[in-house]
Simulated assay, not measured.
Amino acid sequence: MGYIEQLLKNDKKPKLWQYIPFTVFFLGIMLGNWLIVKLFKVSTNDLISKRIAEVGKNMNFLEMIVPFSFLLLFLIIWVLFVHKQSLLSLTTSRNKVDIKRFVFSFGLWTAVIILGFIYSYWTEPENYIFTFDAQSFFVFLLIAVIFVPIQTSFEEYFMRAYLMQGIGLATRSRAVSLFTTSIIFGLMHSANPEVEQMGWSIMIYYIGTGFFLGVITLMDEGIELALGFHAANNLVGALLVTSNWTAFQTNSLFIDITPVENILISSLLVQILIFLPLLTFIFARVYGWKNWSQHLFGSIKKNN
């Protein structure tokens, strides 16, 4: 039974109207943030820098990331009590959540991030400043280990689970579900300071990453791999290296001081066009993925 199709197997399947309130609530928050930035010409980077000057990086990071805990809790309660759907069916089509898949994905992408940073530091050390401060870093480490996986889990449970299943049920199309959630995932980051600094071309990176996460979810019939990748991407990245113009400005080990104008969109395309397809290939070989056209573009039918 497929990841989306499993919701059609009994009379307790979610009703389409049940997806509307929470979806409108969360996307309304995202749209509101974007409108504030655009209508009032607010610089999100200036707001972050000002807040850091007032309370410090750790407290600013905590203020930014704790709300995701409430959003995840709210989503879980909504799914359990309004949809009357199990968390297992929201997570995977398997009989139980496969933790090994999460660990494999997390470890693989962590290795890629670290090796990529080592190469970048080796070739252009002038672009990085080692800023390790034991007290600040270890406090941040504790905050990050607890809250970053919650933040990434909410985004995956909302995008690759809740919305993907809901749109799939509404349209009976895996392709529509895949492309729609990928675009929404990209637009969800439109108020980030990265967009302000690099322009809308960075949407290629965000939407491309969302597409990759959607593909591995549909091919693997569960979000375990997506959960692992996303957690590694945000957690390891935040701990290892950040800059003074991104959404996450943290007490990381290194600060990237590369001028924004020197960061080419081509460097982001390397991840989208090379590394993520390579990861997809590895996952496909390890987990024996087959019948790609049906998994990604097939129709959603009962008893599929």
Rank of each mutant, 00 (worst) to 15 (best):
S49K: 15
V270Y: 11
T250G: 00
I184F: 04
A232W: 11
W34Q: 08
L273D: 03
L227H: 10
V79K: 02
F137S: 00
F68Q: 13
P14R: 12
A175P: 00
S86V: 12
F147I: 01
L269K: 00
R174Q: 08
M1Y: 06
F102E: 01
R94Q: 15
I274P: 03
K9M: 10
F68M: 12
Q135A: 13
K301L: 09
E5G: 00
V66K: 14
I202G: 14
A191I: 06
G32F: 13
E194K: 11
F179Y: 14
T44Y: 13
I146Y: 05
T258N: 05
F104K: 06
K50G: 14
A232L: 04
I300T: 12
W78T: 03
V66L: 15
S89W: 10
M30I: 08
L31R: 04
H295S: 06
S93E: 02
E63F: 15
L273H: 02
I29H: 11
L163V: 04
I255W: 09
P67S: 14
A134N: 11
T171P: 07
G107Y: 01
I216Y: 02
A226L: 08
Y19C: 05
T209D: 01
T23D: 04
T92I: 02
F68A: 14
P67R: 15
F130S: 02
I282C: 01
K84T: 09
S182L: 00
F40D: 02
E221P: 00
F132G: 02
G210W: 04
S293G: 06
T152C: 09
K41R: 12
H230Y: 08
D46A: 13
Y128S: 11
Q294A: 10
F283P: 01
W200C: 04
T180E: 04
A111V: 11
L72H: 08
F283W: 02
I150Y: 09
F179K: 03
M164V: 08
G186W: 03
I207D: 03
Q271N: 08
L268D: 06
I99R: 10
E63G: 15
I204Y: 14
P149V: 12
N262Q: 11
R94V: 05
G237S: 08
I99G: 08
H295D: 03
F106E: 06
I36N: 13
L273G: 02
V176Q: 07
L218D: 02
T180C: 12
I114H: 05
Q249L: 03
P193W: 15
L31Y: 09
N192H: 14
F61Q: 15
M1G: 10
L239V: 07
F117A: 04
N45C: 12
